[in-house]
Nucleic acid binder design. Structure first.
Lengths: 149, 149
DNA sequence: AGTGAATAGAAATTCAAT
DNA sequence: ATTGAATTTCTATTCACT
């Protein structure tokens, strides 16, 4: 199983089940016949930026990172499915192509999403250029943006 | 130094400084002449529901719990300073008294705040009754609501 | 209740291998 | 690049005391 697949699964699991420690992930994956160790889960958690949060009841629970506004997320999802053409990164830049006339709207939504990785964002008619902090950030942004399709 | 004071200070510190581990808190407090151990900080973190989040740069950072909308928070703050009279808990209930005619507005804002501890919330003219999950939740809600004054 | 000292328990990293 | 085994580091809890 590829890392990206496992990451997707972890995101599912952390929402569906109450995960109180990393071993819980190891066990859940084991149930599905996927063998990983705690070391790998620790790295996954870091990459996915999951957080271990003290819960209401007194225990702990791993959570997804704080999401952007539901509203923004909805609109991004619709616009991306609708008008997305391609995405690529070059150094600390992310270049997104859209159908003509949609780039400005997309740029506005990306601004509204307040990605921590993002410095700024400019748009033409069918092109959005996102400037991020560094190459790593650009790659992470690419993944996040693609996930809306 | 009282626990509540220390909690307030921790909330300040976690915003101002980059705290990567609990010992960082111990050190920061030590600099201010406050002697606590890591054990106490661990308990504080649990009570304040601070989270250790993987950061953009590859490290870790303790953060405040995800906040409610800025907008809601602003309005709550204004209304509380304006119209708050008293607050008390009884079992799993929180009873808030306001100046006459303000309870409904306060209840709406409390609803909008989407506190996890809250079941429901009803209001009269000068009284808001919040129903929470249990006694502990009620006490936590009381603290959170008072903090807007 | 709130706390510290000691300890158990959980998570992150190192080191090696692939 | 990705991982597991071992290890280190960090965090939570226990126990005793106040």
């Amino acid at each position: 199983m590829k890392k990206d697949e496992r990451h997707q699964l972890l995101r599912k699991l952390v929402q569906k089940d109450v995960i109180t420690k990393q071993e819980d992930f190891v066990d859940k994956l084991h149930e599905r016949g996927i063998e990983v160790t705690q070391a790998t889960i620790s790295r996954d958690i870091k990459e996915l930026q999951l957080v271990k949060a003290p819960a209401q009841n007194g225990g702990y629970r791993y959570n997804l990172p704080p999401e952007m506004d539901y509203d923004v997320s909805q609109k991004l999802s619709r616009l991306m499915k609708d008008a997305f053409v391609s995405i690529d990164t070059q150094r600390e830049f992310v270049l997104i192509r859209t159908l003509p006339g949609n780039a400005f709207a997309l740029a506005s939504l990306i601004e509204a999403a307040k990605y921590k990785e993002m410095f700024g964002c400019v748009s033409g008619d069918d092109t959005v250029l996102v400037i991020s902090r560094d190459e790593e950030s650009a790659k992470r942004l690419q993944k996040k943006i693609i996930s809306f399709i």
